[in-house]
């Protein structure tokens, strides 16, 4: 452990703003990349399922 306290950890020795913004942005981009395919898949399956139902009825 290279930090004495939580406050120390958050401050990152005056570089807190840089370190945390870099990590925050990375987290944002990585989650976005994971969430987009999941949402797109869900949307696609819903649209297709509706289309199949329509074609069944017709």
């Amino acid at each position: 452990m290279s930090f004495e306290s939580i406050g120390d950890f958050l401050a990152m020795g005056h570089h807190g703003a840089y370190v945390w913004s870099a990590y925050g942005l990375t987290l944002l981009v990585l989650t976005g990349n994971i969430v987009w395919p999941i949402m797109a898949r869900k949307h696609y399956l819903q649209v297709e399922a509706r289309r199949l139902r329509r074609e069944e009825r017709a």
Binding site: M12, H15, V19, T26
Partner: peptide, 11 residues
């Protein structure tokens, strides 16, 4: 570089 070097782990 102090703690700013920790960005290496994502960069």
């Amino acid at each position: 570089q102090g703690n700013s070097f920790r960005i290496i782990y994502i960069h």
